[in-house]
Simulated assay, not measured.
Amino acid sequence: MASSVQSHLLSRLSVYAPSRPSFLSISRSFAAKASAPKPRESPLLEPAPADDEEVPTSGISRPLSEILKEVGKRVPDSLVKTRVEDDFSIKYVPWHILNRILNLHAPEWSGEVRSIVYSADGKSVTVVYRVTLYGTDAEIYREASGTASVEDTNYGDPVQKAEAMAFRRACARLGLGLHLYHEDAS
């Protein structure tokens, strides 16, 4: 089963291999993960396909405009979390949920930390993160930054917190979860 899914995906992605050699290994990894049975944890996941059923991949071999249209849809309220910082209630989508949404609608996406910079006084850290989406006709990237206090360890490591914040903001610049930034303004 895994080899048939893998060969199917690779045949559909062969146009990308010359320009992104590392993409070939990523697609093989994705094909292996796609064929593994997954527990039903959230509305984003589909039941595992039967052995003779082809694995659906909504993002592969689609124009960028279609991918952006899917990514720009409103995130279901059941996936939105709230936390309180400095007496303010903040709505957000956890980074791992955004990751799953990107994997579902834009499996060719990539992300990278562009820089990690500590403030001159060493009290805060800023991370710049880039998210890139690949369509059949184009690719697009957005970068954003996130900053966390080195002393604030309530939500984990400060660098990880800043990275997650930067990732969420870069996703919002592509439309994913952008509605959360507008709800508080009204």
Score class of each variant (00 low, 15 high):
Ser22Pro: 00
Met1Trp: 06
Tyr16Met: 10
Tyr155Asp: 14
Asp86Leu: 08
Pro21Tyr: 06
Ala172Asp: 00
Pro18Phe: 11
Glu85Ala: 04
Ile90Val: 12
Glu183Val: 10
Ala172Val: 04
Asp157Pro: 01
Met1Lys: 10
Asp87Arg: 14
Glu53Val: 09
Ser7Ile: 05
Ser78Gly: 02
Ser61Leu: 08
Ala172Phe: 04
Leu24Phe: 13
Ser4Thr: 09
Ile101Phe: 11
Val55Asp: 05
Pro18Ile: 06
Phe23Asp: 09
Ser14Cys: 13
Gly72Leu: 07
Lys123Tyr: 01
Leu45Arg: 14
Asp184Cys: 05
Asp137Ile: 13
Ala2Asp: 08
Lys69Phe: 15
Ala32Tyr: 10
Asp77Pro: 04
Ala166Val: 05
Gly135Trp: 12
Val117Trp: 00
Val113Phe: 00
His96Gln: 14
Tyr118Arg: 13
Val131Glu: 02
Leu10Tyr: 04
Arg100Leu: 12
Arg28Thr: 02
Tyr141Leu: 05
Leu68Met: 10
Arg40Asp: 01
Val84Ser: 04
Lys33Gln: 13
Ser29Val: 03
Lys161Glu: 03
Arg100Gly: 05
Val15Ile: 14
Gln6Ile: 07
Glu139Asp: 11
Ala144Gln: 08
Ser124Val: 02
Glu163Met: 12
Glu53Ser: 04
Pro76Asp: 08
Lys69Asn: 13
Tyr118Trp: 02
Leu24Val: 15
Arg169Thr: 00
Leu178Ala: 15
Arg83Leu: 11
Glu70Lys: 13
Arg62His: 10
Glu151Val: 10
Gly146Ile: 06
Tyr129Met: 03
Pro63Gly: 08
Met165Val: 03
Val55Thr: 08
Ser4Pro: 00
Leu174Trp: 12
Arg100Ala: 03
Ala148Trp: 03
Pro39Tyr: 03
Gly135Glu: 13
Ser149Lys: 12
Val93Ser: 10
